[in-house]
Design a protein around this nucleic acid. Sequence first.
DNA 1: CGCTTATGGATACTGCTACTATCCATCACA
DNA 2: TGTGATGGATAGTAGCAGTATCCATAAGCG
Lengths: 209, 209
Amino acid sequence: MRIGELSRAVGVPVPTIKYYLREGLLPQGELSSPNQASYCEAHLRRLRLIRALVELAQVPVAQVKEILEALDSDAVPLHEQIGRAHRALTPTRKQAASDEARAAATAQVTDLLTRRGWAVEPTAPALATLIETVAALRTLGQDNLVSFLDAYAEAVERFTELEIDAVSTHPTRDQLAESVVIGTILGETLISSLRLLAQESISAQRWRT
Amino acid sequence: MRIGELSRAVGVPVPTIKYYLREGLLPQGELSSPNQASYCEAHLRRLRLIRALVELAQVPVAQVKEILEALDSDAVPLHEQIGRAHRALTPTRKQAASDEARAAATAQVTDLLTRRGWAVEPTAPALATLIETVAALRTLGQDNLVSFLDAYAEAVERFTELEIDAVSTHPTRDQLAESVVIGTILGETLISSLRLLAQESISAQRWRT
DNA sequence: CGCTTATGGATACTGCTACTATCCATCACA
DNA sequence: TGTGATGGATAGTAGCAGTATCCATAAGCG
C-alpha cells in the first residue's frame, strides 16, 4: 500500500499522515527504494486508531503518542501497560482548591475507596483529579451532587467489570491491551454522549414548557 | 471587592481575570470612577465556576462563554437553557466513518433509543457523536464493546435520574440551571476519574504479575 | 501633600498545538 | 519520456489561552 492509498482509505490528507510519521505516531513504512515506502494492514489499523483518538475522543497528539508507545511495549506486564496509558491520559494538575476543601475531599475519597475495596496507588493522577473535582463541586455549592459519589462509584464499578470481562475474551495479549485502551478512551466518549442524550430526554419530560 | 482581592481569593492572576473580562466570560464590575471597579460575591462565584470548567473539565474558553450565556438567559425555558449548554459542549463533527459503518451504527443507536424510550431531537449533536463512536468502535474491531451499549445506557439512565432528582431540590430556577450544567460537566470529570480508578483496581486484581 | 502601589483599558506579544504548504530529487507507470 | 506520486526536509499558518507592557488615573499611607 502506498501513502496515497492509505490516505484515501482512511480519509486523512497525505500531509497529515506525513506529520504523524514525523511525530512517530505511525511507524515508518518499509522502504523499497529511497523514496518509495509501502504500508500494510497494521498501518491502516493504527491510522484509524489515531484518528478515532484525536478526532472523536479529542486526545492531544502528544498523548496519543504516549498511549501507542504503551501499547507497543509488550515487554512489560499488561497492568503496567494500562497504567502507562492511564498516566498519559490524565494531566498532572496543579492544586486549585483551597487546603481545607482538599483535605475534606481527600478524606471523603479515601473513605469511598476503602469502602468499595478499590486498591489504587496513592500517586495515581486520576486520584488527584477526583479529589480536586470533589473539592470544586463543594466550593461551587453542589454538595448534593457530591452526595451521589457512592452511587456513581457503584455504577462505574459495575460497567467497568462488564467491560473488562468483554475484553478478556481476546486471544492475544496485544489485542487485549489495545481493547482495554480503546475501551477506556472511546468508552468515555460513548458514556459522555449517552449522558447528554439521557439528560436531554429526562429534562424534556420534566421541564418541557 | 477589587480585582486584586478577586485574584487572591481564587488564585487566578490579575491579567487572566482581565482577559476573562475582555472575552465576556466575567461581567464587568461596577465602575465607581473611570478606573476603579468593584466586584461582588457573584463575580467570585462566576470566576470559580470558570476556573473549574477550564481547568478541571478542560472546556475551551469560547465554549465556557456560550455555556455561561445559556445560564444567564433566564428568559428562555429551562429545557432550552440546558439544550444550549449541551450544544455548546458538543462540537459539530465531520463524518469520519464510512457510509455503511455509519448506517449500521445509526440503526443500532436509534433502536436503542426507541427501546429505552429516550426522546431526543434527531439533530442533537450528541447523537452524531454517539453514532460516530459506535461506528469507530466497530471499524476498530471492538464489536464486543459495542454489545454493551445497552448496559451502558441503562447505567447512565439510572444515575442521570438520580442527578436530576438531586438537583431538583434547588429553590430557584437560576440555581437549578446552574446545578444541571455543573453536574453535567464536572460530573463527567468525576465519572471519568472514577472509571480510571476502577480500571486500575480491577486490572491490578486480574493481571498483576 | 507627596509617594508608592493598584487599577482599568488598550494593544502587543508569547508559546503551544495540529496541521498545511512548498520544495526537490527521485521513482513508477503509461 | 513525460506526468504524476512519493519521501524527506523546512517553513508557514491559524487558533487558543493567556502574558506583558504601557498609560493615565485613583487609593492608601505617612
